[in-house]
Simulated scan of single mutants.
Amino acid sequence: MRSGSRFTIVSLLLALGFALSVQTPASAAELVGFSDHRFRPGTIVIRNSEKRLYLVLRGNRAIRYKVAVGKSRKAWTGHAQITAKYISPAWSPSPEVRRDFPHLPDVIAGGAPNNPMGAAAMTLSNGNFAIHGTNRPGSIGRAVSYGCIRMANNDIKDLFQRVGIRTQVVALP
């Protein structure tokens, strides 16, 4: 074998090895048992203390997702409904966020790497809150937001397809 051919083969093997080693983050969603009969199928239940969101299904089951929740004194509890759904939404900081981070621009375009809404968002009827993706996957499983529920981008895309406008959302402590 000529040295040029060896170089080509080695290059191809290295490229293939690199391609196989790059992994896209897997969905954190799990199908689990869910026997809390207070909630009808189709309801989203957020358990702040667990940092989990459940989409209630029939047959005492739910799809469970890992989420980030509101930080101390920012987490919300109560009832809301999904009021709108957006793919790759633009983001404007709330007055509270602007007060803490005055350097932020008025609007961050959808799809921008610094847009905190991630791949999709669903706004809620209880004020400035949403269930949305994030471009900071390390925040998932923590209490870090100003009240919004953050999901991995793969997970928000999945949930987005499963629910509609007026879906009931219940946040528990």
Rank of each mutant, 00 (worst) to 15 (best):
S3L: 14
N153L: 05
L13R: 06
H37Q: 12
R40D: 12
T77H: 02
K85Y: 15
T123R: 10
D155M: 06
T167D: 07
A15K: 00
G59S: 10
N153A: 07
R58A: 14
A119Y: 02
G133C: 12
D158A: 12
Q168I: 08
A121C: 14
H132E: 05
M1D: 09
S5V: 15
A75G: 10
V170W: 02
Y54D: 09
K66N: 00
S3D: 13
R52H: 09
Y146R: 09
Y146G: 14
G42V: 09
G164N: 15
W91P: 05
N114C: 12
G147K: 06
T77W: 00
S72Q: 13
R47G: 10
V45S: 04
N115S: 07
A84P: 04
N48I: 03
A143M: 06
K74H: 14
Q23Y: 09
S35M: 15
W91R: 03
I44R: 04
N114Q: 15
Y54F: 04
A68K: 06
G33Q: 10
I140T: 09
Y86N: 07
A112T: 06
D158L: 15
R73P: 02
K85H: 13
L14M: 15
Y86R: 06
A171V: 08
Y65W: 14
T134M: 11
I156M: 11
V45T: 04
G59T: 12
P105M: 02
E96F: 01
P173D: 10
A121Q: 13
A15Y: 00
Q161N: 15
A119H: 00
L12K: 01
L104I: 01
P89Y: 11
A19H: 05
L172Y: 06
G17I: 00
G78R: 02
R61C: 11
A130K: 13
P113D: 15
R166G: 07
I44W: 00
I63H: 08
I44H: 08
I82E: 10
V107L: 03
V144F: 00
Q168A: 09
K85D: 05
I156N: 08
A109N: 09
A15W: 01
A26W: 08
V32K: 06
H37M: 11
V169I: 14
L172R: 06
K74A: 11
R99I: 00
H103G: 00
L14N: 02
I63L: 15
M151K: 03
G42K: 04
I108W: 03
I165H: 15
P95W: 08
V107S: 00
L104M: 02
I149S: 07
A84L: 06
G138I: 05
P137D: 13
Y146I: 12
S125H: 12
G70A: 05
L16Y: 04
S94L: 03
S11V: 12
T167S: 05
